[in-house]
Simulated assay, not measured.
Amino acid sequence: MKLRPDQPVTFGDEDRDFYIQQVHRTKPFGRTNHYHPTYEIYYLASGERVHFIDQRTVRLTAGNLVLVSKHVVHNSSDIGPPEHERVVINFSDAFLGAGHPLHDPLLFGAFARRSVLLKLNSQERFFVEQLLAKMVAEAAQERPGRELYLRVLLTELLLFAARHPVDERPETPDQQSPLHQKITEIAAYINGHFTAKLMLPDLARRFFVSPYYLSRSFKAVTGFTLIEYVNLTRIREAQRLLRETELKIIAVAERTGFESAGHFDRMFKKLTGTTPLQYRKLSRL
């Protein structure tokens, strides 16, 4: 698949109802703080990458297609030579959600798992790359029916993914580098103990690494500093409690490990753009 230089194409509102980017990179590159309210489709055309997705690391090779649901923490980084080609698509519920003629729950089946990795054979790769090439070309032109045609193409891609068998076997330790094994363990520990007081020196001792190594390595793999990841994990649980329970705001703060309601309010607004009370109201409309 021949990709042009970095040429992102976007249209829609500030939340990016639809976004597509194709890029060929030859220098080291890693995304940071990747957590957004849109669905993501990532196709690796060539090279190798490693993704941190929702507490685990996944090694990607050419011909891999990854679907990541909204509000799932994920980050891409180098593994081996940095050169790679990829296409990324982000789309919102508004772009292909309920109410649109093309909407069907089947299309979102893969996203129900939070993240899915599809390993395509040569015939499947050709099919997907043809679809992506059409999407890139269409998004780059302003002509009547552009948005409708992009919805049709996106629907076809999602239907392909929904019908494709998923290999849910976890990577074995020998498929992961020691660094990524360690970060996977630490991220899993944080997700299981986020209500506790999690400090860098304590975590470093628990996992037999130096604080400096832990701080630097965690950021490199996940895209987040340790404290950013801890706070994000807490806020994600707070969002669930605000949606699904009648707990008071201060009780939600306590249950998610925040030592004060003020700190909880500030961090919630920083990461979500709304206050906890506003979020609860909006989630129940």
Rank of each mutant, 00 (worst) to 15 (best):
V9Q: 15
T10R: 15
T10K: 13
D13Y: 06
D17N: 14
F18K: 06
G30L: 08
G30H: 12
N33T: 09
H36V: 04
Y39T: 01
Y39C: 00
L44E: 04
L44F: 04
S46R: 14
E48G: 00
H51S: 09
Q55T: 15
N64Q: 07
L65M: 15
V68C: 04
S69F: 00
S69G: 07
H71K: 10
H71M: 10
I79L: 15
P81H: 10
E83H: 12
E85Y: 00
R86Y: 14
N90A: 10
F91E: 06
D93E: 10
D93I: 02
D93N: 08
F95K: 02
G97H: 05
G97T: 05
H100N: 09
P101C: 13
H103C: 02
P105N: 08
L106A: 10
G109F: 04
R113A: 09
R114L: 06
R114A: 04
L117G: 01
L118S: 06
L118C: 08
K119L: 00
K119Q: 08
N121Y: 05
E124F: 03
E124H: 10
F126N: 09
E129I: 06
L132M: 10
K134M: 07
E138M: 13
E142V: 14
P144L: 06
R146W: 10
L148W: 05
L150I: 02
L150A: 03
V152W: 05
L154A: 02
L159V: 01
F160V: 03
F160G: 02
A162K: 07
R169G: 02
P170Y: 00
K182N: 08
I183H: 05
A187W: 00
A188V: 03
Y189E: 01
N191I: 00
G192L: 10
L198S: 02
M199Y: 06
F208G: 07
F208Q: 13
F208A: 14
P211W: 08
Y212R: 13
Y213T: 14
S217M: 03
V221S: 00
I227G: 04
I227Y: 10
N231D: 14
T233D: 07
R234A: 05
I235L: 04
R240Q: 15
L241V: 11
R243Q: 15
T245D: 09
I249R: 13
A251V: 12
A253S: 09
G257K: 10
E259Q: 13
E259A: 11
S260H: 11
S260R: 13
H263R: 13
H263V: 10
H263W: 06
H263F: 09
D265E: 11
D265V: 07
K269N: 11
L271R: 13
T274F: 15
T275D: 09
T275K: 08
T275A: 11
P276V: 05
Y279M: 06
K281L: 10
K281V: 12
L282S: 05
R284Q: 11
